[in-house]
């Protein structure tokens, strides 16, 4: 037998279905939200990977040399300063010794004088004059001593300032060279397309000569990697990267010291094999 519910369901099944479908979706979304709310406390802790930067390794022997020289110079200056201080200290010591001796001598003289005073009362007048004279002399000497000490201090101060200035200059020079080197490195690296035959551990050294305008005069391979294509790619990279216009801003003496000839080391490190 048909019942009324079946009849309703068959032809008017839509309202029921709509209610069912919408509530189903609401349920799914609610479940999602609930799950999310519960999971919130354990936030995924992302461990930052150590950045592996694959770069063209380029150690410039000249820059390294300059660095070494600079360091040596600073060390030498330091040494000089130390020896000078030592000397000054020794001088002061000697001075003090002398002073003590002199004081002792005076003491002795005074003792003698007193004796003499006791012995010769008549001489008292002259003695007094002598005494005052000596006191004056002593005062003058003390003043002189003070002046010398002041002078010494000033000299030391001046020396320190000079050293500081030299150091600052060295730092800025070093930075300039560093930044210019980094720039060249970056330009060459951008223009370097490695051949398929390139392998990790290959190494080619190129010596390039440049003009102060940044133009490239020549690039010669001083140490071949053993792979002709690799050497040529390195050469091409330099030619393509030239001219290095940014070198124009460098002071000429700096350029001559560091960039007149420059060695570039081409060594791929980021290849897979």
């Amino acid at each position: 037998m048909h019942n009324a519910l079946d009849n309703v369901v068959i032809y008017n099944g839509y309202p029921v279905s709509i209610v069912a479908a919408v509530s189903f979706h609401c349920l799914v979304i609610a479940a999602l939200i609930y799950y999310q709310a519960n999971r919130a406390p354990q936030v995924l802790n992302l461990v930052q990977p150590t950045v592996v930067k694959a770069l063209l390794i380029d150690v410039n022997p000249q820059v390294r040399n300059a660095q070494n020289l600079e360091r040596l110079r600073l060390e030498r200056l330091d040494q000089q300063r130390q020896t000078r201080e030592e000397e000054l200290r020794r001088q002061a010591e000697a001075e003090r010794e002398l002073e003590r001796e002199r004081a002792a001598a005076e003491e002795r003289a005074r003792g003698q004088a007193q004796e003499r005073q006791r012995q010769v009362d008549a001489d008292a007048d002259r003695q007094a004059r002598l005494e005052s004279e000596r006191a004056r002399q002593e005062e003058a000497r003390a003043q002189e001593e003070q002046a010398r000490l002041r002078q010494l201090d000033q000299a030391r101060e001046a020396e320190r300032q000079r050293q500081q200035a030299a150091q600052e200059l060295a730092i800025t020079e070093f930075e300039l060279v560093q930044s210019a080197t980094a720039l060249i490195q970056q330009l060459v690296q951008e223009n370097w397309s490695r051949p398929p035959s390139a392998r990790n551990g290959m190494r080619a050294i190129l010596q390039i000569r440049m003009l102060p305008t940044g133009e490239l005069v020549s690039a010669t391979i001083t140490e071949s990697s053993g792979d002709v294509a690799f050497d040529r790619s390195a050469e091409n990279a330099v030619y393509r990267a030239a001219p290095f216009r940014e070198l124009q801003t460098l002071p000429i003496n700096l350029f001559n010291r560091n960039f007149r000839t420059l060695s570039l080391i081409f060594q791929p490190e980021d290849l897979l094999f």
């Binding site: 068959i10 099944g13 839509y14 029921v16 279905s17 479908a21 189903f24 979706h25």
Partner: peptide, 11 residues
Amino acid sequence: SWVMITQRWLV
């Protein structure tokens, strides 16, 4: 589609 699924299921 869920409306259709339910409705078809009933029918």
